[in-house]
Design a protein around this nucleic acid. Structure first.
Length: 505
RNA sequence: CGGGCUGUAGCGCAGCCUGGCUAGCGCGCUACCUUGGGGUGGUAGAGGUCGUGGGUUCAAAUCCCGCCAGCCCGACCA
């Protein structure tokens, strides 16, 4: 390398945002593409992040009364056919299993499928149908309700165009599936789980989100109502980070989920489903990472801090390493956000600079450098990943203030992301403004446009042609701060609510 | 599924148009030296059925045909 790059990641966000995203994932060692089309390998550092997300969410699911269970990966093809809209929504992207054996192929010398299945199986793209089939058996009486079950699983959707974490053919997620006796209770569940997602995104991931309802065109296939959380990425595009669906009685009717109520009458149950996926990791990257790589919010970071021992000779090495291990033990006795602080020591035989950048790019919140000079002062050299601030800090002070420092980082990441969203959100009330808002100011850099537009609209059909033209979508109709009626920005027709319009992933 | 492009070392590429010695370069990797609060510099080295099958030719990474795979642009999407 002849010249030292100014940033660890090249290109930078402003130079080429999509490429920057790929490079961050690569340099942070989160995941990589696999030989299997559209499927990713999640590497240990990325998977540890996912495990922390799982842990946080799972706790919240349990606290709201849910239990985990597991249902089959394969779904008989006929199950998918039961709910008309559901078929239409997923049929185009299903992986289908048609055989159950391989045999030698004399023509190619390789293998070929043999023994066709009587009924093809699909690899679950989502589990409403298989879980519903079980629920139909489990639900007899109002006393069996509600059923509140979640499953952690992988699903497959054969997408045309894939991007690591954001859209992969196979992805990891959780899907909650609940059954209720009344419409009101199912609706309450739908909103409750949306709140859980919003809480998790904002308070654990430091990703500010807008909670809102999807329009009919953007709804989950087969749902009566879909609500979602939407986040703004640093290129000002929107990312749907989680969805919760009120399925009404659609699936109950299609799958015969019925029960006898207290009056002895048979009624169809009301169901919900809700999910978040490894896409959250994409949201995390595009919210917090910078031109030097990943930035992990402390609450879900696989390690809170990394200690880098610095020494020249064996004598110093012994002393420095011992000091580092003691420091780690001391730090790990601290707790942050209900979890013991996790500290890594990187004593690999590599040059200091190389190690430093490795951890910068991985996004470890705190970097602690310890060399002979520090030993002499009983202090460490401390650097914050989010701000880049660095200074010498007495050891005891670091130990005492570790928790509050991590909290500061967590909070400042959230504040920074919220500020970006607020700066790039505008209330727009006429077509001309709307058009210019979504037209890139710089033709060479089409990623940069206005951001989120808050606009009244009366009818999805009316605005759709314009949205198609500008490649803008209706993200959601926000649930909060949305009481003022107005007129549609395009047609002038009266409209009750504003919607968030944005370009989206 | 339509339109465009690309398959040469682990990664990124040059060579192909105009066929010709042992197929090159950068990064990475290995060893040794050097350096040491910052991604150092040097020396030596390992590593390739040129995607695949056929054809043309004295001779094919290079020309021709088929096939396969991947990427990009559309339609589709957590």
């Amino acid at each position: 390398m002849n010249k030292k790059a100014k940033t660890a990641i090249s290109p930078t966000r402003t130079e080429d945002y999509p490429e920057w995203y790929q490079q961050v994932i690569k340099h942070a060692d989160l995941a990589e593409t696999s030989p299997v089309r559209g499927c990713m390998v999640i590497k240990p550092w990325g998977y540890a992040l996912w495990e922390n997300m799982q842990r946080g969410l799972d706790k919240m699911f349990k606290e709201t009364g849910h239990r985990n269970a597991y249902f089959p990966l394969f779904i008989p093809m006929s199950y998918l056919e039961k709910e008309a809209e559901h078929v239409e929504g997923f049929a185009k992207e299903c992986a289908v299993v048609t055989h159950h054996r391989l045999e030698p192929d004399p023509e190619t010398g390789g293998l070929r499928p043999a023994s066709p299945l009587e009924e093809p199986l699909i690899v679950r793209p989502t589990s409403e149908t298989i879980i519903g089939a079980m629920y139909a058996k489990w639900v007899q009486s109002y006393r069996d309700l509600p059923i509140l079950i979640n499953q952690w699983a992988n699903v497959v959707r054969w997408e045309m165009r894939t991007r690591l974490f954001l859209r992969t053919a196979e992805f990891l997620w959780q899907e909650g599936h609940t059954v209720h006796a009344t419409r009101e209770e199912a609706l309450e569940e739908t909103y409750k789980m949306l709140d859980v997602y919003a809480d998790f995104a904002e308070n654990h991931m430091a990703v500010p989100v807008i909670r809102g309802e999807k329009t009919a065109g953007e709804r989950f296939p087969g749902a009566d109502m879909t609500v979602s959380i939407e986040a703004m990425m640093q290129d000002r595009k929107a990312l749907q980070a989680g969805t919760s669906h009120f399925l009404g009685q659609n699936f109950a009717k299609a799958q015969d989920i019925t029960f006898q109520d207290q009056n002895g009458e048979v009624a169809h149950a009301w169901t919900t489903s809700w999910g978040v996926s490894t896409r959250l990791i994409g949201a995390l990257i595009m919210t917090h990472a910078d031109d030097d790589g990943m930035v992990m919010p402390p609450k879900i970071a696989p390690a809170h801090a990394v200690i880098l021992p610095i020494y020249r000779d064996d004598e110093a090495r012994t002393a420095v390493l011992e000091y580092c291990h003691q420091l780690r033990d001391q730090l790990q006795q601290q707790a942050y956000a209900g979890r013991a602080v996790e500290v890594e020591i990187d004593d690999r035989d590599l040059r200091g600079g190389e190690k430093k950048w490795h951890h910068v790019k991985r996004g470890v919140p705190l970097r602690i450098e310890v060399g002979p000079k520090d030993l002499a002062k009983d202090a460490v050299f401390l650097a914050r990943r989010d701000t880049g601030e660095q200074s010498s800090v007495p050891r005891q002070q670091l130990v005492d203030q570790l928790g509050s420092m991590l909290e500061q980082i967590q909070q400042s990441l959230f504040d920074r992301a919220l500020e970006l969203r607020q700066q790039h959100t505008a209330e727009i009330s006429n077509e001309a403004d709307f058009r210019s808002y979504f037209t890139p100011q710089n033709a060479q850099d089409p990623e940069i446009h206005g951001g989120f537009a808050l606009s009244h609209f009366a009818s999805e059909q009316d605005v759709q042609p314009l949205l198609d033209e500008l490649k803008v979508t209706i993200r959601c109709i926000p649930l909060e701060d949305n009481e003022q009626p107005g007129t549609c920005f395009l047609t002038g027709k009266p409209a009750e609510k504003r919607a968030v319009f944005a370009k989206a992933y």
